[in-house]
Structures are given as C-alpha cells and as structure tokens.
Amino acid sequence: MDIGVQDVVQSIINGLCMGGTYVLIGLGLTLILGIMNILQFAHGEVYMIGAFTVYFLCVLQGLNLYLAVLISMVTTAVLGLILERVFLRPLKGRFLSYVCVTTGLSLILQTVVMLMFSKGTKQLPSLWKGSFDLAGVFISRERVIAIVMALLLTLALYTFLKRTKYGLAMIASAQHREGALMQGINPNVMSAMVVAIGSGLAAVGGALGGSIFNLDPYMGGLAFMKGITLIVIGGLGSIPGAVAGGLILGIVESVLALFFGSQMGIILPLVLVIVFLIFRPKGLFGHD
C-alpha cells in the first residue's frame, strides 16, 4: 500500500480529533486520581452512561441534540455525586476496597444499561454533518466539533481551577491533603466536586465519541483504557498533561494504525504507557 503525505496528514488530523474525546475522559480520571488518590474503574461506564443518556433524550425522546448533551452532562454529574457519597466516601484510604467497589460499580452500570436498552447498533446523530475539504484532506465536521468542545471545556475547567476559590482549594487539596485540611478546606467537599466535574466531562466525551462510533454498553472499557493511557503519558494529576497526553495518544494511535494496522494502534500505546510508568512515572507534565 502506498502511503502518501496526504494520508499521514489526514490521519494526524483524525487522531487529533479523536484525542479530543480522550482528553474529556482523561481529565476526570486524572482529577479523581490527583485529589482522591484512587483509580475510578467505573469512569468508562460513566462515559458510556453519558452517551446513552444523550441517545435516550435525543433519539428516543426527540430532544435537541445540544440540549440533550447539556442535560446528560448535568445528570451524569449528579450520578457522580451519588457514587462518591454512597460508595467512595465511606472507604477512605483502603486500596483494595476502592478497586473492588469501583470495579463492582462498573459491572453493575454496564448490566443496567444493557438491560435498559434493546440490543442492536445505536448511533447518535451527527453533531454537524458534512466535512471540510482542505486541499485533499477531509475533516469531518463532527470531529472538528469534538476537538473544539474538548478544548473549550478544558479551558473552562482550567479557568475554574486557577481563578476561583473552589478551584484553588481543589488544587491545594490535590497537592497536600493535610495542609489543605488545616487551611479549612473540606476534603469531602473537594472529592464530591471532583467526581461530579469529572463525570460531567466524561458524559460530554461519551456524547462526542457516540456521534463518531456506535454505542454499546461495553464501550466504557476501551475508553477507560484510553483514559489511563493518556493520563500516564501526560502525568498523573496534571491538566495540561491530560490535554497533551490525549492529543498525543490520538495522533500516535492513528498514525500507527495507518502504518501497522489498527491492532498495533491499540497495542503500542499500551506498551508506551508501561514504559512511561517505569522510566518516567511523572509523565510529560507531571511534577513530584
């Protein structure tokens, strides 16, 4: 097969757009890991539920797509709040329990969604039909929307963290839990906020991913893997790292898929993560 420059540019742009959805999953995971020091195994399922909520509202109830995304973001954030309060907060500091409870949750959420929706392929309507044609490189408009939304939300999150009292409190809590506690920052409030925000972002990620791929109750597993991959590459707990990691992952994946087939596009990034974890555990942007 002949691979020209155009193909490479095309796949880089596609990868960049895919990276946008990955960023939205990764942001939640990285925030939760940074502040609560747990790996949210059910985060992929939160993403999946976000996508299915949009499907339910938009396709089954006929709501406006963008309104549906907004509602899905809010309901998923509330779901996150409930999960944090009921399941995660009582377990403070027990590593095995966290792993068990979050994996248990992911099994439950998967099955609930699988039972609620009938089998068969489901897809969300396109956010913006058609594609741009830039000198032979085609960019589908929904992918442009995906990356624009991802960047806007990241920017909003970043502003929130750097410019508001609660955001600063959250950063403080992530940097030094006890120190933040002594400044009167309630770690429980921080945990609740971080899970809610992370879940809301994942829901948008689900909506964007769902308009590119088919919906399926097991879609969260792969999304979760992408999330882990990008936060390790970018640096655990770092927001610029998550963005850079997501975009790098998207590009690497799609370029590798172009040259070596889509399976290698999945395997090699995972190898990369292990290499990163071992030789540079703080990632590209981490500090520790």
């Binding site: 399941f87 068990c100 409870v101 994996t103 248990g104 992911s106 099994l107 439950i108 099955t111 039972l115």
Partner: peptide, 20 residues
C-alpha cells in the same frame, strides 16, 4: 445469566462494605 454481572458487582460491594 444476563443479570449476572449486576449480581456479582452488587455482591462484591456488599461484601466490601459489610463483610470485609
């Protein structure tokens, strides 16, 4: 059987909370 992961997940959580 299609409910099985649900049951398994629920049992796991119940065990962690009430019978560690």
């Amino acid at each position: 059987d299609e409910y099985w992961p649900l049951i398994a997940g629920a049992v796991l959580i119940v065990i962690v909370f009430f019978m560690p």
